[in-house]
Nucleic acid binder design. Structure first.
Lengths: 206, 206
DNA sequence: CTCCTTGTTGAATAACCGTATTATAAGTGC
DNA sequence: GCACTTATAATACGGTTATTCAACAAGGAG
């Protein structure tokens, strides 16, 4: 039939490209309406793809969700841990974890939806633990360096737990009600937590 | 017809009783499977009620969700703020906020699901703000009392934000992965946060 | 130009969703 | 014991869900 139509009916991407498109669309849907909006129809519409593709590339919707979770964590760790914070400076780590890139409302809403799934999905929780361990280790390294040559009045591990927990809480609050905490409040909280134990680390203004 | 059957076909509760049964069932479903499991069918099955009752008593499923959120917050504040902590002792407040009653896995999973909805539902967010303001005020009172007669090196409001945020983060982490943080880790984090600013407040063992 | 792999489409399906509606009966006031 | 209110049950309905599957076509290999 449509021999005369010279525009192809669809674009054929590589498997890798299409997977990334679907993951990105999944994150967008999570940010837009939580796990309720993480729907085959909505995701495929967002990605301009047909319904069958999620099954084809990820075996199931659940498979896509796992890939989305891994991608979200990779972005967070990519911004906060390796590369640009390769020498694990705790101040750089704080600034990275509080950067607009990681704390935009859409990103945080997606995280909140994913956390909810981790709490209810054993397979996802195992994935979570691997990533969390890596994150935790990076923070400890940063704290250890910042405290170099000084005697800490607290175990590094305990301080790392407090720091990570505070970051999580800050993200959660900014997610639930973005207008509540200013970005200055958020930074102050981080430094106020660490400085009693690490001494002054707050970067000078200007 | 069934005149001979002397056991009534159903029990007729007061509106107040039935509402509480449905709210309780709603919380159970949220804890069991997140917002995805907050379903008319599942809730009514859990409450041993028929499907029409949610509409009848709450006008809509959304109405029940609002009631569930209010009930969850009332329980939290009831345990942590008034009555038993009427004189706003910060240590009692910490112990109440970390009590098994408030930090059981089911309770926390329900909270996580509710937070996800608050982030996506404007009507719920307004409700949230009212409760949160009250909670925040109680914490500030507790901090002010603990610091009585001493000069704080930090604003009460800033410390209250840090404290509330840390509690939120602790709940979140225990919710995502309950085996991660021991209850001792959780208590230590709270006291480690406050003591640099308030001085020793940790209760002695035994 | 032809074959073949595989990314893609979209209809079909069965299960489930929330709500509206109707009939019923339990409890209350009289 | 009668009438009335309303909590309850049960069904029906339109919409949405995830998944399956057969047909299709894009693009590379030869």
């Amino acid at each position: 039939m449509n021999i005369e139509n010279d525009t192809p009916r669809f674009r054929r991407y590589t498997a890798r490209q299409r997977r990334e498109m679907l993951i990105e669309a999944g994150l967008t849907c999570l940010a837009r309406g939580g796990i309720t909006a993480f729907t085959v129809d909505k995701i495929c519409a967002e990605a301009s793809a047909s319904r069958g593709l999620i099954t084809h590339h990820f075996k199931s919707k659940e498979g896509l969700l796992r890939a989305v979770y891994a991608a979200a964590y990779d972005r967070m760790l990519g911004a906060a841990a390796p590369g640009r914070v390769v020498d694990a400076d705790i101040v750089e780590m704080i600034e990275a974890l509080l950067s607009d890139e990681l704390t935009g409302p859409d990103t945080l809403r997606a995280w909140l939806a994913l956390w909810g799934e981790v709490a209810n999905n054993t397979a996802l929780r195992n994935e979570h633990r691997r990533y969390y361990d890596y994150y935790h280790d990076r923070v400890i390294i940063g704290i250890r360096r910042a405290a170099a040559g000084r005697k800490l009045a607290i175990a590094e591990g305990a301080l790392a737990i407090m720091f990570i927990t505070l970051i999580d809480g800050l993200w959660l609050q900014r997610c639930i009600d973005p207008e509540r905490l200013s970005s200055q409040d958020v930074r102050d909280a981080c430094y106020n937590l660490l400085e009693p134990y690490l001494g002054p680390i707050r970067p000078q203004k200007g």
